[in-house]
Design a protein around this nucleic acid. Structure first.
Length: 930
RNA sequence: GGGCGAGUGGCGCAGCGGUUAGCGCAGCUGCCUUACACGCAGUUGGUCGGGGGUUCGAAUCCCUCCUCGCCCACCA
């Protein structure tokens, strides 16, 4: 540290080191360096939306990835953390469209047309596309930026097309007219996963219809959607329902549209198992065009399908003159009014039911019959199996169940979207003319383009011919011949699912793929387990023959203090960049990680970041303290000079190294952070540094040098252990303290990120430094006695800075250095050491433990009565505990059944309490008469 | 309706068969003791959601109930 400031100021330090890392190419993952001795470690980033901005969710997610990547580098692995962004079809298109509308440029995207609109989106991407990447850099993310990918890169587009083509060829992709989830706001189909069920308050409308063949016979029907009545093409009852047994096969008169001739409003009454006769009246109106279940009933009974709605959710002419043109929700009310006017509405009751919402647009989806592309998922068995048998591990493991459940009930995936921003479907369509056949076209094109044989499939589909091809010349030819390319694009996730290998150069078998696929860890939120994780696994097996990652770590969701999800609309989502500006990136990282238990939601509280900031400052100052001591950097530790405190801190360090390594291996980041925090703050700073001041003040230069060497040893470990969490400050300290000095560049000489991860001591090292349990116990009990001594002062109302005289009667031999340590720690003016023969003067408060006895001679200043009360209270507590242990031991069954070890423990505990009781008794007896 | 997760001092968490139930924050009381007031020392709070059971022994295992959160599910 060139400049020693009292307070750590992160901004300049962060700038400096991030530029340094980039300039030195520290983040590059190089397949050529991978070997048996240097194994590969890889992560692909969950690509954020290209036009997105950093949220706390990203902070959590990417900090975890960065910790994993940095730890792996320190473990000597060749690390590739591959970054990039996602084109995010609907989200981006809607955002751009909205902005253009707001700016008054257009009313609808149709005003621009496909080409010009796409130009605008690319323009937008150019303007805002880099923001989130820059923000990730501020966080300290150690991605290999030279490999940044975008899901609409030309190469990536080729991958998507190739995969589409391949699946089409395999017959897994098909086109069909089916019920899909239609979003009237975005005017596109959605997959089932993009639909969110929400409770909706509405009404259940009861209306009646007359049976044509039995005038005077009326049936009452309950529905939540009266506006779809004009689309009803049947009534259905359960075949087992005795109430309606005689009516099946007859007809009812549909009330709407009113202007329609009665004969055209006759609909059959059919019997279908699907009808629940407990619900409503047991009579179901069947609207095949606007309900998935109804569609199926319709199919079973060959009912006509009458679509009464437009793409945008307004009613069309088939809904009748009154409803036509109205929005579906307005039409609902209007239809109810019409029923009232007709006198057939019996009642409306308030009713709450589940309605599917488009998760992007936030409006109810409309089940709608339309022509779409579907995918029957490939490689399903392997994908299910690998998670079930834990070849691919989920952390926490419970998500495996969720995955299993979904994989078991897999439905085909609707992959086409009626959008413009995305990968256009590589299929050309033509209405088949007379004598035109798929075979004919295949032969013709194959003759003209011999190389196209494996890149072209022509199929007949009803009246149409479909030519799927990834061959550019064939594509041109088809256009020239009057074929028209399908105007739909693919679901964004149809490109994202290729991410782990498409970003590494697939379909070529690149060096990168060979070295880094499958990736090691994937870090993502459980909310995209189906959207992304599951699909990547299937794509991985299908195209690489192997799983895409070995581990998936599912983060929690970031919530605010009140436990609410962070959201823009609630305004409870703080800007991470502002937080970084205020507290520093390390502070944010540490604050978030400390409060992020494995797989548990994270409550975000700025206080945690403040704590992180304070922690960095503490670390800074502890290193500053070291620097003020001068002396050689990382000198030799001479075992002959090690104090009890030195040995104790080395033992505790060893413990911390083990704890942190184990926690990180299990993805228990918060525990790793907590271990480090505790070790560094409570053990190293609060006890060791203070105790070491005795040795540092020593005139014995050897002793002093040895302690400085211990400090360097511990700090050198501490900064490395912290580096994955706090990359910036640790880099600064690593160089500032000169720990990088004698190391080769690839082992920490250049950057701490290549310094080896600390290892626990070997048995030999422990023996060499004389580290054993006895050392630990003795120092611990020394510190415990210090605490008791401090308590004495506090109890007698002495300010902690008041330097008084203490007397110590040690339980055994005591080294002179320890006397000085105790003196400093209790902040005594003098500490007089007396022998066991020393008699206690009357009225001197004392405290004792295994280490010895401390006396605080106050020469008559103490309040005898309150001291008596205090000791009496203490005795009371001891008596309770003694009682508890005695009762246990007295229980014959206890002695019989309990393991010997536990029995011994209890006996020891009793002895300890009794000893303590004796001490308190004598202290009490020692009080002067009142 | 099914599945999952969580209920421990004011707040956030740890402990998951045997400890005097821990930790951090906040609170309170002293302190600017020359690394750090983004700090130091000391300290008040809980009997572990309710009930039942297993056990020599339960916050920890089992059963049941309650509360909260998430996911899945075509009852109109």
């Amino acid at each position: 540290m060139t400049e020693i400031q009292k307070v750590y100021e992160p901004q300049a330090v962060e700038e400096k080191w991030y530029s340094f890392w980039l300039a030195e190419n520290c983040f590059a993952g190089n397949p050529a360096r991978v070997s048996a001795k240097r194994p590969a470690y890889s992560i692909v980033i969950p690509p954020p939306n290209v036009t997105g901005v950093l949220t706390l969710g990203h902070v959590l997610n990417n900090t975890i990835q960065d910790i994993l990547a940095r730890k792996a580098r320190m473990d000597g692995k060749e690390v590739l953390w591959l970054p990039g962004t996602d084109h995010a079809g609907i989200a981006t298109q809607t955002a751009v469209e909205k902005t253009l509308k707001k700016q008054g440029e257009i009313k609808h995207r149709d005003d621009l047309g496909r080409e010009r609109f796409l130009e605008k989106v690319w323009e937008w991407k150019g303007r805002y596309g880099g923001i989130i990447i820059q923000q990730l850099k501020k966080l300290g993310a150690s991605c290999d930026w030279s490999r940044e990918r975008f899901t609409m890169d030309p190469h990536y587009n080729q991958c998507v097309q190739a995969v589409f083509f391949d699946l089409y060829k395999k017959g897994l992709i098909y086109r069909g007219k089916r019920m899909v989830n239609w979003c009237p706001a975005s005017r596109t189909a959605l997959s089932d996963e993009e639909v969110e069920m929400k409770e909706q308050k509405g009404f259940l409308y009861y209306f009646r219809v007359e049976v044509r063949e039995k005038p005077g016979t009326w049936l009452t029907i309950a529905t939540t959607r009266p506006e779809t009545i004009p689309g009803d093409t049947a009534l259905a009852v359960n075949p087992k329902d005795p109430r309606y047994a005689g009516l099946v096969g007859l007809h009812a008169v549909r009330p709407l549209p009113v202007e329609m001739p009665l004969e055209e409003r006759l609909i059959p009454i059919v019997a279908d198992e699907h009808v629940d006769f407990e619900f409503g009246t047991g009579v179901l109106k069947v609207t095949p065009a606007h309900d998935k279940a109804d569609f199926e009933i319709g199919a079973r009974h060959q009912l006509p399908v009458v679509d009464v709605m437009n793409q945008d959710g307004t009613m069309n002419v088939l809904a009748g003159a009154t409803l036509a043109g109205l929005d579906r929700f307005v039409a609902r009310k209007k239809a109810a009014e019409q029923l009232t006017e007709l006198g057939v509405l019996e009642k409306e009751e308030p009713y709450t039911n589940n309605v599917g919402f488009s998760e992007r647009a936030g409006v109810p989806v409309e089940p709608r019959l339309s022509e779409q592309w579907f995918l029957r998922y490939p490689s399903r068995e392997k994908s299910l199996e690998c998670v079930v048998n834990e070849t691919l591990r989920f952390h926490p493991a419970r998500w495996a169940k969720v995955y299993e459940h979904w994989m078991t009930g897999l439905q085909d995936w609707c992959i086409s979207r009626q959008l413009w921003w995305g990968h256009r479907i590589p299929v050309w369509i033509k209405t088949a003319g007379p004598s035109e056949t798929a075979e004919g076209w295949t032969q013709r094109l194959a003759a003209e383009f011999p190389a196209s044989a494996t890149e072209l499939v022509v199929r007949a589909s009803g009246q149409e011919l479909h030519a799927a091809t990834v061959h550019p010349e064939v594509q041109q030819k088809l256009s020239a011949e009057g074929w028209v390319q399908d105007s739909d694009v693919l679901d964004t996730w149809f490109s994202s699912w290729l991410w782990p290998f498409a970003t590494m150069g697939w379909p070529e078998n690149t060096e990168t793929l060979k070295a880094f696929y499958p990736t090691t860890d994937l870090v993502t939120g459980p909310d995209i387990i189906f959207f992304w994780v599951a699909r990547m696994i299937m794509a991985g097996y299908e195209y690489m023959g192997e799983m895409p990652f070995k581990n998936v770590y599912f983060t929690g969701i970031i919530r605010d203090k009140q436990g609410r999800k962070m959201s823009k609309s609630l305004g409870n989502s703080p800007d991470p960049l502002e937080i970084i500006g205020k507290f520093g990136a390390d502070a944010l990282r540490f604050g978030v990680m400390r409060s992020a238990p494995l797989g548990q939601d994270v409550i975000y509280d700025e206080q945690n970041v403040e704590l992180g900031r304070n922690f960095c400052n503490k670390l800074w100052n502890a290193c500053r303290f070291r620097q003020m001591q001068g002396g050689d950097t990382e000198g030799e530790i001479n075992p002959a000079y090690l104090t009890g405190d030195d040995r104790w801190i080395l033992l505790r360090l060893d413990q911390a190294v083990q704890e942190v390594s184990a926690a990180l291996a299990d993805y228990r980041f918060n525990e790793a952070a907590a271990s480090l925090y505790r070790f560094f703050w409570s053990e190293y700073c609060d006890w060791y540094i203070e105790a070491s001041k005795a040795a540092l003040a020593s005139t014995d230069t050897e002793r002093r040098a040895s302690t400085v060497a211990v400090i360097d040893f511990v700090l050198g470990h501490v900064v490395r252990l912290f580096h994955p969490f706090l990359p910036f400050i640790t880099e600064e300290l690593w160089h500032g303290l000169g720990y990088s000095r004698d190391l080769p560049p690839d082992q920490g000489g250049k950057s701490i990120m290549y310094a080896p991860w600390p290892k626990p001591f070997t048995a030999e090292e422990k023996a060499y430094f004389g580290l054993d349990d006895a050392v630990d116990r003795r120092s611990s009990s020394k510190y415990e006695l210090v605490t008791l001594g401090r308590n004495l002062k506090a109890q007698f109302g002495m300010p902690s800075n008041k330097r008084v005289k203490f007397i110590l009667r040690a339980a055994g031999e005591i080294a002179p250095i320890d006397v000085e340590v105790v003196r400093i720690l209790v902040n005594a003016e003098t500490l007089e050491v007396v022998g066991s023969g020393w008699t206690t003067p009357k009225g001197v408060p004392s405290a004792a433990n295994a280490f010895g006895e401390l006396f605080l001679p106050l020469t008559g200043l103490i309040d005898v009565a309150s001291e008596r009360t205090r000791l009496a209270k203490e005795l009371e507590k001891i008596a309770t505990e003694v009682g508890k242990v005695r009762d246990k031991l007295a229980n014959p069954e206890f002695a019989q059944k309990v393991p010997a070890k536990v029995l011994a423990e209890h006996e020891q505990r009793l002895a300890d309490w009794l000893a303590k009781e004796k001490q308190v008794h004598s202290a009490l007896a020692n009080l002067p008469e009142a």
